[in-house]
Amino acid sequence: MAELITVAVVDDDRMLLDGMCHWLGQVPELRVTAVAATVTGLLEGAADGSAADPAAVVLLDLVLRDDSSPADNIRRLRAIGSRVLVISTVPDRDRILAALAAGADGYLTKDNDLPTLVAAIRQIAVEGSAHSPELAFACAHDDRPDRPRLAPRELQVLLDYAAGLTLKATARRAGITPNTAKDYLDRVKAKYQRIGRPTYTKTDLACRVREDGLDPGRAPR
């Protein structure tokens, strides 16, 4: 059996938290070590010794109700050595891209089934990164002026993968091997993470402005 992967879940919806624990509890190779409503709550729990080591992978709700910035949350979790899989109910392109720039290792919407979720957690724990169509879609349709430049091949692979094609089918259509296709996806992700650093404050600022309740009706969780 594969090595046990420790998982923590941060979500401000109690019912979802319970459901997620129950769900992941069915998977032998995963162990949920901590749950919290906020990142601060999770880090405090780790500090007072109730959880020995930081979890290998943290499932982090994209927008929490405590007004914390998604980018800050991701950075704080990465700082203690956890990998971060961001989850949200509705995909919000700008926030997803900001999360990616802040160092998120993967992104999924909450309506994915258990095998997809487990596969993403495993990939992040083992390879340090997971791809998903929703993440690819956000990158492929990024129309901000300061978006990273993608090579035509990278964009083609990204678009096909974003449309929900398997990695094999994506590779076959591009005339490359699945491994190369995955390399392309990795490269795109790396480009996004790289531009995240210099624009750190700018992206953050934009996030905060959005969270300041300018249009709370559209804030996804």
């Binding site: 096909d160 449309a163 929900g164 094609l165 398997t166 094999k168 089918a169 076959r172 259509r173």
Partner: peptide, 10 residues
Amino acid sequence: VDSAPGEGTC
């Protein structure tokens, strides 16, 4: 229509 055995359909 694009497909191959074991690779899904698009």
